[in-house]
Simulated scan of single mutants.
Amino acid sequence: MKQNIAILCSGGDVSGMNPALKRFVEYSLQNNLTPYFVYDGYEGLIDNNIQKASYCDVSGIINRGGTKIGSARSKRFMQVEYRNIAKQNLDALHVTMLIVLGGDGSFRGLHQFYKEHNIKFCGVPSTIDNDISGTDYCLGVDTALNMIKFSIDSIRDTASSFKRAFVIETMGNKCGYLALVSHLTSGSELCLIPETAYNLNEYEQKFKQEIQNGRRYFIAVVAEGIKEDSKEIARWFEEKIGIESRVNVLGHLQRGGNPTVKDRLMAYKFITYAIDALLDNKNETIVCYTKEGFRYKEINAVVNTPYQLDEELIKFINSPKATE
């Protein structure tokens, strides 16, 4: 008798979810499993918006951002009565295995669901914030970084033309990963992230000296979770450095876009490892990607361990020094 397996997307969407859905259907059928899509995340589990999936459902979606089956943040799933309904809906379809593409909050809900109903699951880290403990990489991050790269490169053109400072704000909540990596790979002059203390006064002499030596523009990349508002940073450039400034909040464009080759490949691998875990009776794990490769980690360790940004990356932020 075939086993039934379902997949859902929870929380913020990322580019890479559609390639993951494609691999999910194909690899499930390859392993004699019947695949089901849960539409609109945990809300779909509660509302019984669960449908059998086939090759036709994933044809032509590998190059599309977002997620064909929708995503959501579900307050109802936090309540035990709605989790009971979700379990009843899965039981009615004889779904015994569940894969969840999501972030830390999604995994916390999944952990509670497992403790109450013991349904086999595997989580795939999927958030552009890249802030899940235990994994060095989350699905969607590379595409987000490339969207930011394109934006910064475009903004630099106008910044240099008009002698301006641009403060570019990235997503990341309280995690500065996107801002830091974008700073290191874009050649920006200033990077501010929640993980490191900073004093803008320390940059004044250096930046003023650079203007005297011919610098025409500045690019500052800041994470949304820093203590100052981006407008305050722009005001600092105008009042202290003496250069006209603009703020560009990149916002949700970071989540969209054509999935990069890396995210398509990572989606393929993440889903393959997830299904293999369930078939191997690993019943409550998260697929993590580390310097040692793919590893399975218990969900309890993942959701109960605070995320920490790579110290090596943080060290790459140079202290401001005035030019001789």
Rank of each mutant, 00 (worst) to 15 (best):
N300M: 13
S71W: 12
R164N: 15
F107E: 00
N4W: 13
C138T: 04
I243K: 01
S126K: 03
A86S: 08
Y114G: 01
K115R: 11
Q51T: 14
T185H: 09
D47N: 11
V249Y: 05
N49L: 10
Q3I: 11
L98E: 07
S106T: 05
G187A: 09
M97L: 06
R23D: 01
L8Q: 11
Q308G: 04
I314L: 12
L184E: 04
C138F: 02
G60H: 12
L178R: 04
Y177C: 01
T158L: 07
A267S: 07
I155C: 05
M17T: 00
A274G: 05
M78W: 02
L8K: 11
S245K: 10
E26F: 09
D136R: 01
G225Y: 03
I155G: 06
I61C: 00
K240P: 07
G187D: 06
P125L: 11
Q205H: 10
N300R: 14
L101I: 05
A92E: 06
A159E: 12
A267Q: 03
T260Q: 14
R255N: 08
A86G: 08
Y27R: 05
N199M: 12
N130S: 12
N118A: 09
K75I: 09
E232N: 05
K149C: 13
I226G: 12
A277M: 06
V167G: 06
Q308E: 07
L178A: 00
R83G: 00
G225H: 03
Y137I: 07
K75Y: 13
E238W: 10
C288I: 08
N199S: 08
